[in-house]
Computed example of a mutant assay.
Amino acid sequence: MKERNDTRSRRQRSLTREQIIDASIRLLDEGGEGGLTFQALSKLLATGPGAIYWHVADKSDLVTAACDEIIARTMEAKPAGASPQETIRALALDLFDAIDAHPWVGAALMSAPGQLPMVRIFERIGQQVRSLGVSAEHEWSAVSALLNYILGVAGQNAANAKLAAVQGLERASFLGEVSAAWSALDPESYPFTRSVAAQLPAHDDRKDYLDGIDLLLRGIVASS
């Protein structure tokens, strides 16, 4: 019995946490959180659930770990000689692209407040905001505004792309229909919406996102 237990223990240790996380990311990318099950993970890794539980507590722990791996990879790039504004802008764009490529990451971040993947982002933004000379009194508000904007817009963009894929929507056609519907709204009740309706079909999500970052940064700098 002892020999059998020793063999099982060696097998569990031979499977690394990194291998489990990489396989989990693959399953999450393919099927979202619903696609990540210990049965599917065991099959992909050609092992038993016990070997996986040796390294992770449960599915929630696994999703957070997978999310942290994506965020850590995204944090690796640091533009050399960039100003704090340029660094924040580059970071914001990298996060936008990472969440677009891995749509489940946005929800995973929202489900793990105060945990490492969120703290990584918070710390990186916080360092740059401090480098801008923002007063201690306004640091929290400035960092929170940037963090909430980045995760909110990037997460919504990923959700929109997922919905479009599920429903088989073609972007140009869908936005054209929405634009036509907005243009037909009552002019007295919806003057602004009607005025921007024509811009909707050709708007660039990434450019709009970065424009928002620039607006926030100008406000932060002006108030510092």
Rank of each mutant, 00 (worst) to 15 (best):
M1K: 10
E3T: 15
T7D: 05
R8H: 06
S14A: 15
L15Q: 09
L15R: 09
S24P: 10
I25H: 07
L27H: 01
E33I: 05
G35Y: 10
F38W: 03
A40C: 08
L45Y: 07
L45V: 09
A46W: 04
T47N: 07
G48N: 13
V56Y: 01
V56S: 01
D58E: 12
D61M: 09
L62S: 10
T64F: 04
I70T: 11
A72F: 03
M75Q: 12
M75S: 13
E76T: 10
A77M: 05
A77Q: 06
P79Q: 04
A80C: 08
A82S: 12
T87G: 11
L91Y: 00
A92S: 14
L93N: 10
L95N: 02
F96Y: 15
F96Q: 09
F96D: 09
D97E: 13
A98P: 00
I99M: 07
D100E: 10
H102N: 08
G106L: 02
S111R: 12
P113I: 01
G114T: 08
I121N: 08
E123V: 15
E123R: 13
R124W: 05
G126Q: 02
Q128I: 09
L132C: 03
A136N: 11
H138V: 15
V143P: 04
L146E: 08
L147P: 01
Y149M: 04
A154Q: 03
Q156L: 09
A158F: 01
A159Y: 06
K162H: 08
A164V: 02
A164S: 11
Q167W: 02
G168F: 00
L169H: 00
S173I: 14
S189E: 13
Y190Q: 04
R194M: 07
A197M: 03
Q199K: 12
P201H: 02
A202D: 14
A202M: 13
H203Y: 08
D204N: 14
R206I: 00
K207N: 05
D208L: 06
G212V: 06
I213F: 12
D214S: 14
L215F: 14
L215H: 11
L216W: 13
A222V: 10
S223K: 10
